[in-house]
Computed example of a mutant assay.
Amino acid sequence: MIGLGVLGMFLGVFAFDAVFPYLPEWGVRAYPQSMTLPLVLDVSYGSLAVTLGVFVLLMVALADRLDPGKRFEAAETRGTLLRREWGFVSTGVLAGLVILAATAQGQYLGISGGFASLAAYAAKPFGHVLASVPALDDTTAWRATLVIGIFAGAAASALVSGSYRNVPVTPLWESAFPTGMKSRGAAVFAGGFLIMLGALLGGGCTTGAFMAGFPTLSVGSFAMGMTFFGVGMGTAFVLYWGRWRKVSEVRSRSLNLAND
């Protein structure tokens, strides 16, 4: 399943390259001047950043406390550090440090750019040059290795925590969709394709435009973030329309909806 998703993402890069020359005519990716909230609201960056930071932390803490799924996942709070799920504070701090390190070097943390560079590198031996994405060179190699490291890190985390399971089709999907493997494979492939195409069209992914872009208080990053969440929730609602009973049944078996 992972392979289908990765294949879809690479094909999304080639699809973007195919439509790239026509984007200015369609009014897409016109590269407007950067706009930030301090500029729009005419306030200092520091005061606004601290205010929004505190607000986001309070909202996340409230959502974490009110999360109804916690009663199904109580067992995950026990055990050693490497064998249980971490909280949003510790993982958020670690992610922030990585973003800070990248920003301090004049770079931005991003995944879609790494995938695009890898696709350009893979196409080069076949004589196909992707004009719309950066080539794999000294300035982009670290993003490409970041993409590879994500897979290695995820695999290491699953093995160390003992949570690795060879489950081609998750219980929730299998319960809701009778076609199982075929529908899941098609959804993963289409999702990978649309995610990459959308990220390149929008100028960033959940990592670059959302996580790394938020500290800059970019208006575009806020718009992208709200779009990510809105479309994601809407898609899930449409997919499981009329199937909410299946969701309840899966949760009653103490399965984590995020993983299963």
Rank of each mutant, 00 (worst) to 15 (best):
L57S: 06
T207W: 14
Y22S: 09
A199L: 02
S90L: 13
S183R: 15
T207Q: 11
T206L: 09
S117K: 09
G208H: 08
I148G: 02
G180Q: 12
V89W: 06
W142T: 09
S47L: 10
L257C: 01
L94E: 00
F229D: 05
G92T: 04
R184I: 04
G69F: 07
A104R: 12
A141T: 00
G27K: 09
L172Y: 04
A155S: 03
T216G: 09
A74E: 12
A116P: 08
V160K: 05
W241Q: 08
A236T: 12
V160P: 00
T227W: 15
T227G: 15
A75E: 11
V188L: 08
A101G: 09
M224Y: 15
G192W: 05
P21L: 05
W26N: 02
L197I: 03
L257Q: 01
L255A: 08
L41K: 00
Y31A: 14
K70Y: 05
F88A: 15
G213P: 01
G180H: 12
L109N: 01
G203I: 00
S183I: 00
S218W: 01
L136Q: 00
E249N: 13
T51C: 08
W241M: 13
L146T: 11
Y31Q: 10
L41V: 05
K246C: 12
V231E: 00
V247R: 06
G242N: 03
G8Y: 02
G53T: 03
V250R: 06
L4N: 03
T139S: 14
F88I: 13
Q33I: 08
E174Q: 15
S44Q: 06
R251G: 08
H128C: 01
W244S: 08
L48V: 04
S161D: 02
M1P: 07
M181K: 13
S47M: 10
G180Y: 09
M1S: 09
G53N: 07
P21V: 03
G127V: 07
L217C: 04
M181H: 10
G113C: 04
W142S: 13
N256E: 02
S157M: 07
V129K: 10
R165W: 05
V43S: 08
V247Y: 07
R243D: 06
F210D: 13
G230F: 07
R84K: 15
V167M: 12
S183M: 10
T103H: 15
T139R: 09
A120L: 06
A120H: 10
Y108K: 14
R243F: 02
T91N: 13
V56G: 01
L57G: 01
F177A: 01
T145R: 02
L255D: 02
R65C: 04
K124Q: 14
R245V: 06
L172E: 01
E85S: 12
V6L: 15
V40Y: 04
G185H: 07
D17M: 04
G79F: 07
A74I: 13
R84G: 11
L48N: 05
G225P: 02
G113M: 03
G92C: 12
A123I: 00
L39K: 10
L200F: 00
F210G: 00
A18F: 14
R78T: 05
V40L: 15
L48H: 03
S157K: 11
K124R: 15
S175N: 12
